[in-house]
């Protein structure tokens, strides 16, 4: 517990937390606007091609739409939690504080656990902020659209709570990533490229391969990406072309477990000099 306090104090005593919080809120605003436009077309489907009609109609379900709107900003919020998780580790090497940290606590596994917990707490706070903003925005928007608001629906509440799980787990993924790539710039740039470009690239490649080989199952591989899995996790209802929501949870847990275990093992054996 005292270690988690120490690690959270580290986050709180530099500028990073409010810069990331600010970034999250700004990008939440953009995401929410985009989602509003999309939701508007879902509510007023005109001239939709037949093959997408089933999906659009499923997304227009009040619970699906409310869950979709109320978890706005997840994509960029998770990115900042990932970056913060990375920084909690790489900062120690960049600023040469790893020595002090491991002198105070020779049990390195405990330090990694505390860092993960501190990043998860930060994730919780970002989740709380974006969720409050999203819920208020969703109520206003759906009222204006004269659409049904399904905030009390169990699947919507489930989505919002699972969104918290995603925010917490991404902190762990960030910590593991930071251990793997110790260089501050190397780790953050690689993570950003993988997160922003990688998600898109894999989706396109998987789509092309699937069409080329005429194998539908290849398309499903895209859900193995942690970013896609996070989106899947918070979908309110099952859409026709998606796996169940809990598949996203399992994928995310697997990523967090692998990065966490590898990160801890490396940290335990690493010479600090």
């Amino acid at each position: 517990m005292k270690l988690i306090r120490s690690e959270f104090l580290k986050i709180r005593t530099t500028n990073v937390w409010w810069l990331f919080a600010l970034g999250t809120v700004v990008l939440w605003g953009l995401s929410f606007l985009v989602n509003c436009v999309q939701a508007h077309y879902i509510l007023h489907p005109e001239g939709v091609p037949d093959e997408q009609a089933a999906t659009i109609s499923a997304m227009g379900d009040p619970a699906a739409l409310t869950a979709y709107m109320a978890t706005s900003g997840q994509y960029f919020g998770l990115m900042f939690v990932l970056l913060l998780g990375i920084l909690t580790v790489t900062n120690e090497f960049y600023h040469q504080t790893a020595t002090t940290t491991f002198l105070a606590t020779p049990h390195r596994t405990a330090v990694i656990v505390a860092k993960t917990a501190a990043a998860a707490i930060f994730g919780f706070l970002l989740w709380a902020v974006t969720t409050v903003l999203s819920v208020i925005g969703t109520v206003i928007f759906l009222n204006a659209e004269n659409a049904e608001i399904a905030l009390g629906d169990s699947s919507v509440i489930r989505s919002i709570l699972l969104n918290l799980l995603a925010f917490a787990l991404w902190g762990l993924i960030g910590v593991g990533f930071g251990v793997l790539i110790r260089s501050q710039i190397g780790a953050t740039v690689t993570a950003l490229i993988l997160y922003l470009v990688g998600t898109l690239a894999v989706s396109i490649i998987v789509q092309l391969l699937s069409n080329w080989l005429d194998q539908d199952w290849i398309r499903e591989l895209a859900w193995a990406l942690p970013s896609n899995a996070s989106g899947l996790l918070v979908s309110g209802v099952d859409l026709p072309d998606q796996p169940h929501y809990w598949v996203g949870g399992l994928v995310l847990l697997a990523w967090a477990a692998v990065t966490g275990v590898i990160g801890t093992l490396i940290t335990r054996n690493r010479d600090i000099s």
Partner: peptide, 10 residues
């Protein structure tokens, strides 16, 4: 152990 072992912004 190191002269400069603190976060620059803290």
């Amino acid at each position: 152990l190191e002269a400069s072992s603190a976060h620059k912004g803290r």
